[in-house]
Structure formats: structure tokens, C-alpha cells
Amino acid sequence: MATIVQRPQLSLLERSYFPAILGGLWITIKHFIKTLFGQTKVTMQYPEQKWDSALPEWYRGAPTLVKDEHDRERCVACQLCEFICPPRAITIKPAEFPSNGPWAKVEKYPEKFDIDMIRCIYCGLCEEVCPEQAIFLRKDYSITGLTRAEMVHDKEKLYELGGVRHGLVNKWNEKK
């Protein structure tokens, strides 16, 4: 069914465009002056100003490895995160503690721990699955690099980003 749109009847003055043009010019000059004198809130100047302080507590940034308060690594190289990682961004090469050493019961530690940040989707499943609370998603969101190799975070980089995390550690608890 055809719809007939009633066109508005414009007066001669309105048809001359002038009132609309002057109205438009008035609006734009108001915006110009307000921005010129800094009364308009404009966009944040990103690299200089960041919204880090406004990030929520549960923000999921780059996954990192953490150490405990005695500067010992928590990861036991169980590889659960490697298996659950949907984009397969994590590669772990476990190594064994010597069986006659004092930490023989711990059995394993990661010799290599790489997270490919090109692949990582920041889902947080690695943090959820970790039995030792060794991997956490921190608030770093600006992960950049000039080469693919640079975008792979190795163990050293992961600990540097992760820092220290206090709390329950099963790995180094002798009674467990």
C-alpha cells in the first residue's frame, strides 16, 4: 500500500534557505567557541592520558606468571593452561627437579613458558584452570611489538609483568 507523505508547506523565507543556513552557522560557531575555550569535553589524548585508573577490578588484560612472597615461582608445569587455551597460545616445556634434591616432591617446573600474544584472546581460562594460582590476567592491555617474535612473551617477560602475588601456595607447602 502506498504511503503518502505530507510535505511541510514552507514559507517563502524558509524556501530561501537563509534562516536554516544562519541557524546552522550559529550552531557550529557555538561548538567552535566552546571547544576553543576548553569548555567541551573532548576525547582523551591516549598515549599521554590513559584510563588505567578507571579499569575495573575484574579487567582481563595480558596473562602473566606470578611469584610468591619468597620470590619462588608458583607454576608446577602441569600444562593444564596449555591444554585449555582455546587459541593454543601457551607453550610449556616442563623440566624435572632432581629426585634427590630437597624439592623432589614438587617434581616439575617450567623450563620454557611462552605465551603468544598474537594468539591470546584474553579469555582468562588459563587463570581459571590453574590449580596453583600461578597465572593471572593483569591489566596490561597495550601489548605491542615490531615482529612476531617480539609478541611472544617468554618466562622472563611473564614474571616481569606478573610480579609478586601473596596468598595460598600449594606447591612449596611441605605438608601438602
Binding site: T35, T40, Q45
Partner: peptide
């Protein structure tokens, strides 16, 4: 610069 100010932006800086 003028276009930026009119559109509530900053323009080249």
C-alpha cells in the same frame, strides 16, 4: 583545526 573544533575534536596537535 576549525573542522575539529566545530565537531568537538582537537585536530592536529
Amino acid at each position: 583545526k576549525v573542522s575539529a573544533f566545530i565537531q568537538d575534536r582537537i585536530g592536529p596537535n
